[in-house]
Structure formats: C-alpha cells, structure tokens
Design a protein around this nucleic acid. Structure first.
Lengths: 342, 342
DNA sequence: CTGAAAGCGCTAACAC
DNA sequence: GTGTTAGCGCTTTCAG
C-alpha cells in the first residue's frame, strides 16, 4: 500500500504538503501541486480512509438501521439514501436487525460514533428512549419513518404526515361512495401503524362515517399476512365494499384474498394501500395507494444526519415531509350500487 | 468519547493490559480482568473500531457492490450476506452503482483495501480484467453471480451453474409437451444472461428440439421490459405455447402481457422464470421457476472474501453452487392439445 | 508556501 | 502477568 510518506519522498516534499495538495490545493504553489500530483499518479496512491478518519476524529460512513431489508420499501429507501450519501462523500453501512432488538443494540453499541459517524434509525423495536440515551452520548442519531416517536432536538425524526396520508385514502374511498369499509392494520417493527389508521378513521368521521363502522383487522406487514387477514375480515364482514390497508404489501395480499373468495377487484371490492412501493404499479391489478415521497424522506434524513455530524444544529425536532399523494390505479372503483347508502 | 487510556487509568493498569483484557482475557490475571471490566462498565467504554482497524492494518468491513438494489434479487442477497458477515464480526457497506461503471470504479478506488477489507462484486459493467488489476494490488475482491467471468485464483468467482439452471427449465417445459417455445433473454448489468439461455437451448436440443425453434427476444431485466418483450414476441409468434425468461422479473412481466392479450396462463401459455425471488411465490398466478440458492451463494461469497482477507488462499478459481432446483407453481401446465406434436 | 512534530486510539512485540 | 514502546497513515497546528 502506497502511503503519503512515499508520495512525499518521491515528490521531494513532506507528508504535510502532500496532504495539503490533496485537501487544500489552493494553499500550495502550483508547481509543487503538479509535482505532488505526478507522484500520486505514478505511485497509484490512494488515501487510506481509515487513517484519515482516525486523524480527523470522524469517519465518512453513515449507518442505516432497518428491521428487514426484504420488505420492499427498504431497498427503495436504501437506494435513495445511498445516492444522497454518496453525493456528499459518505458511504452507507446497512444494518439489518432482523426484527431483533438485540441485534439492533449490538450494532448501535459497536458502530455509533466509531465506525459510523451517524446512524439513521428506521422504525425498530428499540425504544426511542433508549436511542435518546445513545444520542446523548454524542452520536449523531436520526430517527426516520417512526410513526409515533417523541422527537427531540437531540434525537430528531424525519417522517411523513401519516395522519394526512390515511386521510387521503379515506377521502378517496368516501368519494367513491364506500361506506362499509374494512381496514387492515399493519404491525411492523416498532409497533402498529396506528397513526395511519387513525388518520383514516378520523377523516371518515369528519364525513359522517362513524368510527366504529370501520372494521379493523391487525396483522403483520407482509403480503402473506395481508392475505390471511383479508380473508378473515371478508368472511366476518361479507358486506364490506372497500378495504384500506396501512401498507401496500398487505393491500396486495388482500387483493389476492378477494380473488380467491370470488370477489372482483375493484368491481366488488375496492382496495387501497399506503406507501406506493414499486410493486404497487407492477402488480396486477395495479394498486391504488397513497404514495410516500421516499426519495425526499431519504435525502432529508441523510442531510440531517450529515449536518449533525458536521456540527450543524437541527432547526426543528421533527421533519414532516407532507407530500403524501393519492395515486389512483385499478383497485378502486365506485361502490357497488346495491350497497350505496345515498 | 471514553478511550482505552482512561479505562486503564481508572483500573490502575496500562492501556496494553486493557487491550489484553478485551481481546485475550485468558492471558490476564482474573482479578485484573475484573477490575478492568468494572472500569469499562463504569465508564461505558466502547472500542473505537477505526483506531483498531488502523492499528491492525485492516478493517472489519466488507463492501458489496451491486448494480441496483431495487432489483428485488439484491435485497434478498444483501440480507443473507449481511447476516453471514455479522456472524463473523464484519459489517457490510452497500455500494450501489446505479448501473454506472464510473460510480463502480470510484467506489472501488476509494474503499478497496482501505475502508473495506474486502469487496464482493456482483455482476457489473466493470470488466473482470479491470477488477483483476485491482485484485492484483492486494485487495480481497470476490466476484459473485457473474455469468461469464474468467475467474482466477487471484479473483475467484462464486456463482451458480447457470447452464444447469437453464436446462432444468427446458426439461420441465419439454416434459409438459411444449415444443413451440419462446425465450426472453435478460440484459442486466454486465451483459446478457446468455449462459442461462444457452443451457436452456442445449437441453432442448438434447431432446431433439432444434435450437432455432426457440424464438428469442432480448430485453432489460425488469417487469416492465419483460412485459413489452413478451407482447412483441407473442404477437410475432402467436403459436408459442411456452415462454422461458432468464429471470423472474421478466417472467412476471410476460404473464401480465399474456393476460392483456387474452392468453390464459397456464392454460394457453406456460411461463417459467429463473431465480425464485420472493415475488415469484407472492405473485398470482404463482410463478414456476428455477430457484437459485441465494443464501448459500451469499454465505459462500462472504466466507471466501473473509478468508482472503485473513490470508487463507482459495482452493479453486470458481465456486459453483450447483443446487439450482425446479420450483413448480401455477404458471406452467401441459401444452394445449391442439399444439402437441406427439 | 513548506516543514517539523504531535497526536488520533489502538495493537503488538518485547521487556521486566 | 503487566508495562514500555513503537508504530498504523493521516491531519493539523505552529514555526520558519
């Protein structure tokens, strides 16, 4: 491995000068710069980022902690986060906790502040309180996509307006004439996605649909679980004309369940999801859903984390990205005539 | 940040002893161990992995370079690789090249041998020759899932037997009576997936189906591209009774295309994919496919990389994981009677 | 504008 | 068993 010292020797200067050439070339005489750069090229010198990190007292690595990357939302998020990080000269360490708080803690304990200068923590089973302690010790932690975290200036949270997102779904179904509506409440890591559901129920209530008219079934956040839950819910409540799922995976499972019990989507049953993962438009019928601005969330989370690393104080506790938008595709339609109230 | 020296001072020993307690406790007197551990606990000491890496001359980080993590095969792979790495005390840096060789080179240049002790390089647009040069410089590079790389002892490759995988698909369709067969040839990063196709065509040839009877259409490796390609192929060749896609995404697109032009799958058209991503069984109709042993591939690639980092020489150039297996689901059926030859 | 020197936090010989 | 010492490769004052 070629070191700074070797480059320095070859260019007839000291290591300090080489370092300057590489970092603040304007502070060095042009002819020297040229000589040093020549040596760098000839020797094929590449800075040792580990040594640099030690000397600077901070690494150029960010960690992204998530519960399970095989949930398709995360790869989409990782892609955006990695791109944002790369643009600012940072690398991204992926920490998959496998829904296991012990793994999450072990990761945090090992990397926060040493291997990774900052950590973006997606919804996990580690409590925000515990994370706040770690943040207190000086690590740049940023929560992301937590549905109900008590964000503080020391532990800010980047998220979307889940209530609003749920409300958009409600408004859409209401306007299509649906009144007998079921809901699948997802339970990912970090607890149930109940804010989304609350937003949904409240928006219906505001339109005169009683909250207890919404039949809710809880399940894990996956296609398979959504399938099972929808089957159960639809057999208990055969008159439902629409189903809201707090995330797209469950909505897709619900569509499959409907097909298997002979209900056509959207003619007999409308289904709407939340998130707008790629699969939502790739699946058939293409899923109507409320889209999250994934790229924006990721890049804000990355930017906020880097700002904290670099000592820039956050201006707010929570960063709500409000741009959830309704994406109408092929799984929602007007409520069947027979069931309409008005 | 609490340092070794502070722990040492508190425990009335030197830094070297603390280091020993943490790394080779059996070499230290039990009472000392206890005293040191107490100090560690009281101070909340956590080793600085950057400093350790610099001192040891190597990091405990692996990089995984892939073209685009939003292709659902990769998250599944990342999950397995990360788990395997974690078990051996390594962290995983995800390097997404966005199908851009310049990004790949930049990553390699920056991290190989400095930030990451080893790099697993998935199929990319950077040539194996170029990678071999980098490997020569001493970085632990391991190729993974390359379809046609000239693996060497200095640059080994972990992969599956693509020919065999293609052959399994061919045998299945043949046994169902299909003779008019189309193929979608995927073009991911790193070139066309032609070994899979060759295996498919050769296996058919071995059964007496002429190679030029297989109508091939090339396209990108995605659901959308598979959809377009299948539509085009099926309209050119309306008598096809079966379609082989060199990967599952394209197969899923093909199923959607068939539906849109009024062909029922599998009654009118059988479709078989390759890889067995999660989506293959989540999709409806559930996709018949040839499965890759993703977990095995990932863990072998990780193990091989770590072995190289730790100085253990690879025994072979190429590691072919031969366990591709046929997974029969709902998209393949006997060829329609009208079209059967025998 | 460049060089000298100290030090980031830890490890690893080698003494004692 | 434990301490001493010398780095790992780089950055960063501070002199000159």
């Amino acid at each position: 491995m070629v070191t700074l010292a070797e480059v320095a020797q070859r260019a007839q200067v000291t290591a300090a000068t080489v370092s300057n050439v590489l970092r603040n070339p304007q502070k060095v005489k042009p002819t020297t710069v040229e000589r040093v750069m020549a040596a760098v090229r000839e020797l094929g010198y590449r800075p040792n980022l580990t040594a640099r990190a030690l000397a600077e007292g901070r690494t150029s690595t960010l960690a992204l902690m998530l519960s399970n990357i095989s949930n398709p939302f995360y790869p989409e998020f990782v892609l955006e986060a990695e791109t944002a990080a790369r643009r600012r000269g940072y690398f991204l360490l992926v920490c998959n906790t496998d829904d296991n708080p012990a793994i999450a803690r072990a990761y945090l304990d090992k990397i926060a502040g040493t291997l990774a200068a900052g950590v973006i923590v997606m919804n996990t089973d580690v409590s925000a309180g515990e994370l706040a302690d770690i943040a207190q010790r000086g690590s740049a932690l940023v929560l992301c996509m937590w549905e109900s975290a008590q964000a503080t200036r020391a532990l800010p949270c980047v998220t979307v307006d889940y209530t609003h997102a749920g409300g958009l779904a409600a408004a859409h179904l209401y306007e299509l004439g649906h009144r007998r509506i079921g809901a699948l409440l997802g339970e990912g890591s970090g607890g149930p996605q109940s804010v989304r559901l609350r937003g949904f129920v409240e928006a219906l209530a505001a339109r005169g649909v009683a909250a207890d008219a919404v039949k809710v079934h809880a399940c894990r956040d996956s296609i398979e679980a959504g399938y099972d839950a929808a089957r159960a819910l639809l057999s208990e409540q055969p008159k439902l004309t629409a189903l809201f799922a707090t995330n797209d995976l469950m909505a897709i499972g619900a569509i499959q369940a409907a097909a298997d019990i002979g209900k056509r989507v959207p003619q007999d049953l409308s289904v709407i999801g939340l998130t707008n993962i790629h699969l939502a438009h790739q699946f058939r019928p293409a899923l109507t859903t409320v889209g999250f601005p994934t790229a924006a969330i990721a890049s804000i989370a990355v930017a906020l984390t880097i700002d904290r690393i670099e000592g820039i104080k956050p201006k707010r506790d929570a960063y709500k990205v409000p741009l959830a938008e309704l994406v109408i595709r092929d799984t929602t339609a007007p409520a069947p005539k027979a069931s309409r109230r008005k």
